Measured scan of single mutants.
Amino acid sequence: HNLTITQGKLFFHYNPKLCLSEIHKMEEVSGTKGRQERNDIALKTNGDQASCENELLKFSYIRTSFDKILLRWEPYWPPDFRDLLGFMLFYKEAPYQNVTEFDGQDACGSNSWTVVDIDPPLRSNDPKSQNHPGWLMRGLKPWTQYAIFVKTLVTFSDERRTYGAKSDIIYVQTDATNPSVPLDPISVSNSSSQIILKWKPPSDPNGNITHYLVFWERQAEDSELFELDYCLKGLKLPSRTWSPPFESEDSQKHNQSEYEDSAGECCSCPKTDSQILKELEESSFRKTFEDYLHNVVFVPRKTSSGTGAEDPRPSRKRRSLGDVGNVTVAVPTVAAFPNTSSTSVPTSPEEHRPFEKVVNKESLVISGLRHFTGYRIELQACNQDTPEERCSVAAYVSARTMPEAKADDIVGPVTHEIFENNVVHLMWQEPKEPNGLIVLYEVSYRRYGDEELHLCVSRKHFALERGCRLRGLSPGNYSVRIRATSLAGNGSWTEPTYFYVTDYLDVPSNIA
């Protein structure tokens, strides 16, 4: 807008934040220059609390790290170098490059900038070799853009010569660093050979998330399962459950009422301010606690030095998902009996873990797994792929695949051998790939016309006998059925096997 004052003059007093240069501009645009008398524009009460600059400061050096910015700028000295009290560095987070010096300023003089007072450097006698002032900004957020400017702080001049310097606002972004852990990993099994893994992005990506790394490792069953005799009275049979499938998407929606109208769909109840505040506090606490764990609990591995020492970490090797089922080394339970199943799973520490690289999504279907087997899954978020990966501390989750139908069934015939004193040795093959492992066998036998009897055969007993022995049988026709019990439950009964026990007292003698 054009402003013209045809008559009258300007009068400025007691404006401590208004620089004289701005008042002189007002004289020019209003056409009143030359009308004012000496005392109409006070030299001592206008701009006496402001830094009124008329020179431009330029930054000469900028260096960044993930949490620091090192700045240096060209030296500046007023005509009387004693008038320079120091520099004021202003900075704040700036997602967009549209910041002005006066953003967030209120009537009390406060604003949204963080201000650092910096002492002037030592003055050199040689004007050509003056030290460049600077400042190291610490405690910054990774991968965050900051708006920065600097200006001088000078003393009051009796001659009211307006001098000083100020830089333009520059924008500097800190470097990326390792992201925080992925949030809320959930693993479920939808079949006997697959596990579905879902997660949420890290709360602090500290860069642009480029991919996720998912490692999985087959877990050995508890050692007590191999040692305890679950045929003993009072000892509860062990059981394991597989990871249940995901709930429906509708039930997972946030901010939804727990109660549904019987007449149909209901609208979600909005969260109160107290609920939102509580969630923010919980989120802040979780982030602080995660940072504490990362800094205190997890110790970084030592990389190899120039002395030739090897990095103890196993090298990563990509495998196809079809090879995942046989990740671990199978060892027989008892070496003397080769027909026992290889369900003991000690994992070799030198073995390469299978892994998958996930790009542009937060889910993965891990296939080719062994049925009813526990897996430990390790999830890392990465925001750099080359020249070397920059990934987060791992988040861990466990899951067990679903049982395989008929995996616990005894394959092959049940054979028998009759000894003296009416002892019958029953023999059968253990299931080759049971659900988890076989903890015991149930032997059901009966003599024709009598009630059915049951015998429990422990895992250890089966390994020693290759089956079991029935003792003290009365003469007669017998039928026997056997079924295995694994961590997933009972298998199917075998087809009945028949044998006849004679009275050993009636056996004919070869003595003449």
Rank of each mutant, 00 (worst) to 15 (best):
L280R: 12
R447P: 08
E356L: 06
G467E: 02
P431Q: 15
K317H: 14
Q429E: 14
V443Y: 01
G449I: 14
V214M: 15
Q252R: 11
G472V: 11
F246D: 07
K460D: 11
S348T: 05
E351S: 14
N383S: 09
V327H: 07
S248T: 10
R376S: 10
P431T: 02
N490S: 15
H461I: 10
E465L: 11
N435C: 14
V345W: 10
R218N: 07
R459Q: 14
V393W: 14
N339V: 11
E356Y: 09
D450Y: 13
E378M: 06
I366M: 08
D503S: 11
D273A: 12
K253P: 01
I209R: 13
K271Y: 14
S268D: 10
V393I: 04
L505P: 08
N421P: 12
E227T: 06
N435Q: 01
V443P: 01
Y445D: 00
N360R: 13
S320V: 08
A395S: 13
E227C: 14
V480F: 06
T288C: 11
V297L: 09
S320C: 10
G374K: 11
G368C: 06
E430H: 05
S284K: 10
N383K: 02
R469W: 04
V443A: 07
D222A: 10
S251N: 13
Y448W: 15
S474P: 07
K271C: 02
S341H: 14
E404S: 06
R400W: 06
E217Y: 15
L487P: 09
E451A: 14
A395I: 12
P238E: 06
Q380C: 04
P205F: 12
Q275G: 13
E417S: 08
T485S: 07
E282N: 01
Y445N: 02
L426A: 02
H416V: 07
E442R: 04
S492P: 11
L232Y: 11
A484L: 02
D503N: 08
T343G: 12
A336W: 03
S344Y: 10
H416S: 09
I418T: 13
C231V: 02
T307E: 15
P413M: 13
P205R: 07
S363G: 10
R370L: 07
R286D: 03
A381D: 00
D503M: 10
N326W: 06
T502A: 14
T373K: 07
A309V: 11
T303A: 09
Y504I: 07
S268Q: 04
F462D: 02
L455D: 15
R376P: 01
L437R: 03
T272S: 13
A263K: 03
L437W: 01
S474Q: 10
F419K: 11
E249Q: 13
T340W: 14
S203V: 05
R286Q: 05
L455G: 10
I438W: 02
L293R: 15
F246H: 10
R459L: 07
S274E: 09
Q380D: 13
K302R: 12
T272Q: 11
S304N: 13
L235I: 11
R286V: 09
S509T: 10
L321Q: 15
T485G: 02
K460W: 07
G374P: 10
F337A: 15
C456L: 02
L464D: 10
L470V: 11
E282V: 09
Y500I: 08
C231F: 01
R313M: 02
P434R: 05
A381L: 01
T288F: 04
P312Y: 15
S342F: 05
S320N: 06
D506C: 06
E279P: 08
L321N: 09
D503E: 13
T415G: 04
V358F: 14
F285A: 15
V296Q: 15
M427E: 15
L464K: 04
F289I: 08
H454E: 11
E356N: 14
L225M: 10
Q275T: 12
E388P: 08
E217L: 15
S509C: 01
G476M: 00
S315I: 12
F462C: 02
Y230P: 05
V397K: 15
Q275L: 06
G472R: 08
S274H: 12
S363W: 10
V345I: 15
V393P: 03
H211K: 05
T347P: 07
T307R: 08
R318V: 12
R218T: 13
N421E: 15
L369S: 02
N295V: 15
H425N: 12
H371K: 04
R400P: 02
G467F: 06
T241L: 09
G472T: 03
F372E: 03
T494V: 01
P245K: 05
H254T: 11
G207A: 08
A394C: 06
R469L: 07
F372T: 03
N477P: 07
E249Y: 01
E281Q: 12
A335N: 11
N326I: 08
R301Q: 04
V359F: 09
G412V: 06
R447Y: 15
R319P: 04
S251M: 11
H211W: 05
K287D: 13
D450L: 06
V359M: 10
F215N: 10
D261A: 14
L505N: 11
C267I: 15
R240S: 12
E389G: 04
T307H: 13
G207E: 02
Y375A: 03
V299Q: 14
E258A: 14
